[in-house]
């Protein structure tokens, strides 16, 4: 993979929740203008990683730099300024339930800019057009399907023309058509707007289709990173098991550690 400019840099990041260590000394860099996927099994804390990058959570140790800014050393105000350059697509869409589709997309524009209502109208329609939901602008979030709310949330995420956008499990629980639509949207938005996209997912096929760069996380460690060609060449080990969806391998099929014969002894 060619050496691209780095936008987000994570250095020696450690984070634990209670007794459980979620990240243990992770170092990775996310290149600018590319689609980077962070993959890992469910419960490996991928969403947590996004929240750490965006400064919503504080790590136990280690640093996150965005465009050279040390995220967790910033004041609250500076973090909020930085977040205007970020868009985030939450797993559930996280639309504001008391506003309709149009107002949801217009929301960040109205809150952060003093644009006149006509311009906001034009901008919102443009964003809705980009996700193909111009016709749904008067619907309430409760009237949308899961895939549609994700697309509206995407339109809202790009309303302020961010420099980077984070996708939290965009494909989970979607039908194949919606998955296809989302894949295409992520791809075109990234290319046409010159965004940096960070994608957290465990849907291997979709990720392989769009990601330029893939990081695999398991049990708090960064296991592999590289372009998809590099990763697919691995024929053994965890990455091989994960990318091919094999039931047994380095990750054992059985959860319990005690030998079966031991456990069978009653009492």
């Amino acid at each position: 993979m060619e050496q691209a400019e780095t936008l987000i840099e994570i250095k020696n990041l450690t984070f634990s929740r209670g007794e459980r260590k979620i990240f243990d000394d992770i170092t990775l860099s996310i290149p600018k203008g590319k689609v980077t996927a962070i993959m890992g099994p469910s419960g490996s804390g991928k969403t947590t990683l996004l929240k750490l990058i965006a400064g919503q959570l504080k790590p136990d140790s280690g640093d996150v730099f965005i465009e050279g800014l040390h995220v967790h050393g910033l004041s609250r105000k500076k973090i909020y300024q930085l977040r205007r350059k970020m868009g985030m697509l939450f797993q559930s869409g996280a639309l504001l339930t008391d506003l309709n589709v149009f107002d949801n997309v217009a929301f960040p524009l109205r809150e952060h800019t003093k644009l006149p209502e006509e311009i906001i109208y034009a901008l919102v329609l443009m964003k809705l057009q980009a996700v193909g939901l111009r016709g749904a602008k008067t619907l309430m979030p409760s009237e949308l399907s899961g895939g549609m709310s994700r697309r509206v949330a995407l339109a809202r995420g790009i309303a302020l023309d961010p420099e980077m956008i984070f996708y939290d499990e965009p494909f989970v629980g979607q039908d194949p058509i919606t998955k296809g639509v989302l894949v295409k949207l992520i791809q075109t938005l990234n290319d046409s707007l010159g965004l940096t996209s960070v994608l957290v997912s465990h849907d291997v096929d979709e990720v392989l289709e769009i990601a330029d760069y893939i990081c695999v996380i398991s049990e708090g460690k960064l296991i592999a990173e590289g372009s998809k060609e590099v990763l697919l060449q691995e024929s053994t080990g965890y990455v091989h098991q994960f990318l091919n969806g094999l039931p047994d391998g380095p990750v054992p099929f059985h959860f319990s550690k005690a030998p079966y014969s031991e456990d069978l002894k009653y009492g």
Binding site: A54, Q81, R83, T97, P108
Partner: peptide
């Protein structure tokens, strides 16, 4: 419910302080 549907997180990510908003 706003928290469980990540609306509060979404506000924070849109650089809107949920305390104020």
């Amino acid at each position: 419910l706003m928290r469980s549907t990540e609306q509060i997180s979404a506000l924070e990510m849109m650089a809107i302080d949920p305390i104020k908003f």
